[in-house]
C-alpha cells in the first residue's frame, strides 16, 4: 500500500524518504510479532504443556520459533527503519556484510564442540547438566554427557578416565 507513495522529489537529489504510513505499518507489525513471540514462549505456562517435552526436536522447534520471530523483527528494523532496503549498493554491502561476518564468526564454536571427538585426556565432554552432580556410574560413565566419548581401542593415552570434569 504505502510503497506506491515512495517519491523522489527533485530538490531531494533522489534520496529516499520512507513515508509515514510505511513506518507506522512497520511498528504495528513489530508489535504484533512481539505479542506472538510472548504467546509462543508462554504456552507451556498456560496449560499446554503436552506440546513440550525435553526432546531435542521439540527444543529445536520452540527455539527456532523464538529466534525466527526475532530475526523477522530484526529484518524489519534493518530494512525499513534503518532504510537498508532503500539504500545504495555500497550501503547494502556494508550492512549485509556485517551480519554475514557475524554468522561466519560462529565457526569458532566448533572448537568447543569438537573437543570430545579427540582422544585426549581431560577433553571429555562436559555434563549436559550439573543436575544431578557427580552422577558418575561405577563403570566410569556419566549419564549427563551430551556426547559420549568414542572408544578408541588400544590408542588410549593410558590415563584413567575422569568424568564430570571440565
Amino acid at each position: 500500500m504505502a510503497t506506491a507513495e515512495h517519491t523522489h522529489d527533485g530538490h531531494d537529489h533522489g534520496h529516499h524518504i520512507t513515508p509515514k504510513n510505511t513506518l507506522t505499518a512497520t511498528f504495528l507489525t513489530l508489535t504484533g510479532l512481539m505479542v506472538l513471540t510472548i504467546v509462543a514462549a508462554r504456552l507451556p505456562y498456560m496449560g499446554v504443556d503436552f506440546l513440550y517435552d525435553d526432546s531435542l526436536l521439540v527444543r529445536l522447534i520452540t527455539n527456532g520459533i523464538a529466534i525466527g520471530i526475532a530475526l523477522l523483527k530484526a529484518a524489519l528494523v534493518v530494512q525499513i527503519f534503518m532504510g537498508v532496503k532503500f539504500g545504495t549498493k555500497l550501503v547494502k554491502f556494508y550492512a549485509y556484510g556485517g551480519f554475514i561476518w557475524f554468522l561466519t564468526m560462529s565457526v569458532i564454536l566448533i572448537d568447543y564442540f569438537s573437543r570430545p571427538w579427540e582422544p585426549v585426556q581431560g577433553w571429555e565432554a562436559a555434563p549436559a547438566s550439573a543436575l544431578p552432580r557427580n552422577a558418575s556410574q561405577p563403570d566410569g560413565t556419566n549419564p549427563d554427557f551430551i556426547i559420549q566419548r568414542p572408544e578408541h581401542g588400544g590408542k588410549d593415552h593410558g590415563g584413567e578416565k575422569k568424568s564430570g570434569e571440565h
Partner: peptide, 29 residues
Amino acid sequence: MWAFLVTEVMFFGPLFFIYALYRWKYQTD
C-alpha cells in the same frame, strides 16, 4: 556509520556465542 555498526556487531557478537555455548550445554539449568 554502517562500518561503525559492523564493529558493534563484532562487539556484541561474541557475547551471543558465549551464550549459545553455555545454553547448549546447560539448557536445563
